[in-house]
């Protein structure tokens, strides 16, 4: 078992080295390929004039850029020059805020829908219509009504992360084993105590699954939302670096987006294991 984990890590490392090697090699040869092969797109992007910048940088360039950035992640030299740490912190703050608001709505509402077939019937049509809407489609309306780009981004996170939590809570609550409900009933527990002491722990694994799906979606959406609203955040940062044609920085921030997303997912995964139970 242990040796399997070790061999796995070793193989991962081999893959990494091979991939970086191929990448390095590919960027090196295309660099020697000359300016004759500039595509229309590169021309459009001004590649003809400034060949070195427009090319995909080799991994060595990305790594040295990463080291420089991570050495001082929180510097702040005005609106267009902030460290990657600050940008990520803005994005994480928006995600956590919108996500927490969604949780605060989804949990009680999910309980109501899950416990009352009437409410389920009444609310289900709205959920079914609202759920498939791309969260970014809300952006214009949000900007118009809220009149604030920061809050609009948070609203978009709210609206995109609410559905998995709402539906999973409702599903988890509705499917709590009748036996356990009967235990609560024979002990004369009121509806609130039943909800807290029996239904919540019984439905917790399902609810946490919804929360985990939601945080993933929220992190996907924040990048796009920040590209739209601009100003701060990792999404804005990626777009800004693209406009600066600093591709090493773009690739570096893409990787950071992946790392943070993974950490968020791992945190929820931990929580999920805490509430799981075996029957």
């Amino acid at each position: 078992m242990n040796s399997l984990a070790m061999r796995g890590s070793l193989l991962s490392l081999v893959f990494l080295v091979v991939m970086l090697g191929l990448w390095e090699l590919a960027t090196a040869t295309s660099g020697g390929g000359g300016t004759a092969e500039l595509s229309e797109y590169e021309l459009l992007m001004g590649g003809a004039g400034d060949e070195g910048v427009a090319r995909v940088p080799p991994p060595s360039a990305v790594i040295s850029h990463a080291i420089a950035e991570l050495a001082n992640p929180f510097y702040d030299n005005g609106p267009n020059d902030k460290g990657i740490g600050i940008q990520l912190a803005y994005s994480i703050y928006r995600v956590i805020t919108g996500y927490s608001m969604a949780l605060a709505v989804a949990l009680p509402l999910g309980f109501v829908i899950g416990m009352s077939p009437l409410m389920y019937k009444a609310l289900n049509p709205y959920i079914q219509v609202l759920r498939p809407i791309s969260p970014l489609a809300w952006m214009p309306l949000a900007l118009f009504i809220i009149q604030d780009s920061e809050r609009s981004a948070i609203f978009v996170i709210f609206i995109c992360s609410i559905w998995p939590m709402l539906l999973n809570t409702a599903f988890g609550v509705a499917n709590v084993r009748q036996d356990w409900i009967n235990v609560a009933r024979t002990h004369e527990l009121g509806p609130l105590r039943t909800a807290v002491t029996v239904i919540l722990p019984a439905a917790a694994p399902t609810i946490l699954t919804g929360m985990r799906i939601s945080i993933g979606i929220a992190w996907l959406v924040i990048v796009a939302a920040e590209m739209l609203v601009g100003g701060t955040g990792i999404g804005y940062y990626v777009w800004n670096e693209w406009n600066n044609l600093d591709l090493a920085s773009v690739i570096f921030s893409i990787l950071m987006i992946g790392v943070v997303g993974m950490l968020l997912d791992m945190a929820l995964g931990r929580a999920q294991r805490l509430v799981e139970f075996k029957e």
Partner: peptide
């Protein structure tokens, strides 16, 4: 309705597994 004056032991035990 159920009452604490009547205790029930179910066939499938019905313990809370968590």
């Amino acid at each position: 309705g159920p009452s604490l004056e009547r205790g029930v032991v179910f066939q499938n035990y019905s313990l809370l597994p968590w």
